[in-house]
Amino acid sequence: MSRGHVPSDAEYKSQVSAVWKATFWMGLITIVEVVIALIWMKYLTDYPRIILNSFFIVASATKAFFIIGEFMHLKYEKRALMISMAVPLIFLVWAIIAFSWEGGAWHHMRGY
């Protein structure tokens, strides 16, 4: 939003309600995460943990989207800014893949 632009009452209201909506969803996701973690701990420990972990990662990514998009207002910024924030994440994704690949290799080399 450019500086000096004063929002109208309708804009203001929709902004505030968007924020609370995002808060609601983030809170809900966190609660669901915790509840599922607890259920898993009690009853589902025999299932492969990767299912649970993938869920956690997706849920956290969703929360991150809410924070960046709604709280940090990126959703309403120009596309160029969004892209300039998103593109460098490719490097991080590759770094995560490469580093955990390597971590796995060390695990193997140490003979575990």
Partner: peptide, 11 residues
């Protein structure tokens, strides 16, 4: 820079 550092050969 690390081909010979014990890097995983597939990487």
């Amino acid at each position: 820079h690390m081909f010979m550092s014990g890097l995983n050969p597939f990487a």
